[in-house]
Nucleic acid binder design. Structure first.
Lengths: 354, 354
DNA sequence: CTGTTAGCGCCTTCAA
DNA sequence: TTGAAGGCGCTAACAG
């Protein structure tokens, strides 16, 4: 046994700034200044230092720097499930925006379980994230969300759903989006509509129900929030729950899906029963993911602009890092209705049909 | 101005183990032992320390620990694009597997650009990741991949595609998958087939072409790899490139899509031309994402088992962290053919048709 | 431009 | 069980 072996294992044996400066024959401070791109360094020494770095395979240790600077240039994202293409697009846009600002992302998927979400937030806070973007799991509260906000926790921005007005929030204007859908469906001459899908207890679902109710007010359409069906936010569960509803004898003239993912399940279930989406029953939806326009028939959907939501959320979080104390903000992204064949083709049933 | 303000900004003002031990009236070593769950601590002091931690809102600083232990319990994942549902599922399974082992994930999306991929890998290595999972961008080489592998870089596991045999690799057995598809298509009585889609230069695409060629050997089917069409791995580009090919007068009896995402574009383009997928032309594909069985008609696809790939990749990387020096391994996941209506319904054209 | 110094929070060792 | 001490790699301050 070698009694002289070092007691503390160095960072994977990588070269340190110390060794680089020794190799280049300059002081540590100088090497450090080169790293930070200082202009007060002569061209010659800069070149010498940079060459030594290349030769020794030096990699900047940002964790060590973090211990001094108390910022890690790292942001945590905790979301529910990216198999939903809306969230996949949102996530990629988030990554792009913060990457451009020099940040790297931690990611965790809560799968809509708040206990798991808490574990992930805790792990990220232990790793000193500068801020957190959260798409809150169902059941999230200020008590179970974890060590965020307040005096010492990192700031948190809620995306797409919110659980507390004490944190920043960015999402689509769901109420407005739903109202657009409702007015469009009403204009077709439908007489009844239901909402299918959406996780029970989500703020986005509540807002969409409110918007539908508002949009259908003062029309002849029968719409009752209590008849709406909650689902997991995926096609399979959408199909299953619609099947239950149809089996109970419910068949409205318009089905409004909570999301394009659910609309896909609805298309499948209708076709399985020889009902033609857009002809037998009008179908409209939310999100307008690329899928929507590729469906047969193309699906009417309100775009809720994942990329804009992501960009606004990134801007808000980066601003919050600069100014942690000002009032929490809510940013709502304007929705856009995309009318396609799944509603445009629909015509009122001729008189005499049962 | 307060001349006595600290010169070094502490970690966001959070309580340290130092303060916790002072508050609890024990030594720092004792507090540290409590953290690590040592059994050599009396129940009473453990409770006192834990209560102080709760009172002060103490959060373990894993970055500081990392400086001593030279492991960060952090893994980097760099992939191309999660809007492809196969990669979305893969990613969620990766996260689940490494989370269960106590690791937290950094994520970056290269969008299939290797320069961007390198930036992301560098950022993660600077943050001291213990290992990296890479779905290599097109054009990745040992030279441009960044500071990984070798004596000092973190180990790297390639997923789904590979650029070098010097790193571990986990992916579907693409050659076998393609061979299964080819033999199935041949069994239908088709006389011609082409491959549509897949990124030019990807190892997975090359393997699938080889497998198709192998599967079609000694059959009557006309299949020429040179006639195949490369695309980005999304539905839109699949539709566009198929349109080009059809415009050039190509209309094989079977179209084999590179992925379910591309098959979706193919369905759309065929329908736009009043060609019936599964009737006018047999369509088969790779991946078997949930989408495939929901298509109308349901899409024949070879499952390439994202979750199994992710689990094997996680196991391999975690094993590699224990034993960094042994030979790099390749793990191939067995594919499963799922026959559905898009091929099952197809019948040879009756004699006399042009 | 250089060198020195101290310390971020944690872990380990060693002696008490 | 406790206390003291040193150091992981980096940065900031200050006096040359």
């Amino acid at each position: 046994m070698n009694k002289d072996q070092p007691k503390v294992v160095p960072t994977m044996g990588r070269a340190t700034l110390n060794e680089v400066s020794a190799h280049a024959g300059v002081s540590r401070s100088t090497a450090s200044l080169v790293l930070r791109g200082s202009t007060r360094i002569s061209e010659a020494t800069r070149l010498r230092v940079e060459q030594s770095m290349a030769e020794l395979g030096y990699v900047y240790n940002r964790q060590a720097a973090n211990m001094r600077q108390s910022r890690s240039m790292t942001i945590g994202v905790v979301e529910t499930d990216i198999r939903n293409p809306y969230f996949a697009e949102l996530t990629m846009a988030l990554e792009e925006a913060v990457h451009d600002a020099g940040y790297t992302l931690f990611i965790g998927y809560s799968r809509d379980r708040h206990e798991r979400q808490r574990e992930q937030i805790e792990a990220m806070v232990q790793r000193q994230v500068d801020g957190i973007m959260l798409l809150p799991a169902i059941g999230t509260t200020a008590e179970n969300v974890g060590p965020v906000g307040g005096l010492y926790g990192p700031p948190l921005v809620q995306i797409s759903r919110y659980f507390s007005r004490d944190f920043d929030y960015v999402g689509a204007d769901n109420n407005q989006a739903a109202s657009l859908v409702a007015r469009h469906v009403a204009s077709l001459g439908c007489t009844s509509a239901i909402l299918v899908g959406g996780p029970d207890g989500s703020s986005a679902r509540r807002e969409r129900l409110e918007g539908l109710t508002r949009g259908f007010a003062h029309t002849n359409i029968h719409f009752d929030p209590a008849e709406s069906v909650t689902t997991l936010n995926n096609a399979d569960d959408g199909a299953r729950r619609l099947a239950d509803a149809l089996d109970r004898g419910m068949l409205p003239e318009a089905i409004i899906a909570y999301s394009d993912a659910i609309a896909q399940g609805i298309y499948g279930e209708l076709l399985r029963r020889n009902l033609q989406p857009g002809v037998s029953v009008a179908v409209a939806s939310f999100d307008d993911v690329p899928l929507a326009s590729l469906q047969i028939p193309p699906l009417t959907s309100v775009a809720t602009h994942a990329v804009e939501v992501a960009n606004a959320a990134s801007r808000l979080l980066l601003a919050r890092l600069e100014d942690p104390t000002s009032q929490p903000q809510s940013v709502l992204i304007e929705p856009t209705l995309k009318v396609r064949a799944s509603t445009a083709l629909w015509r009122p049933r001729t008189l005499g049909a049962s």
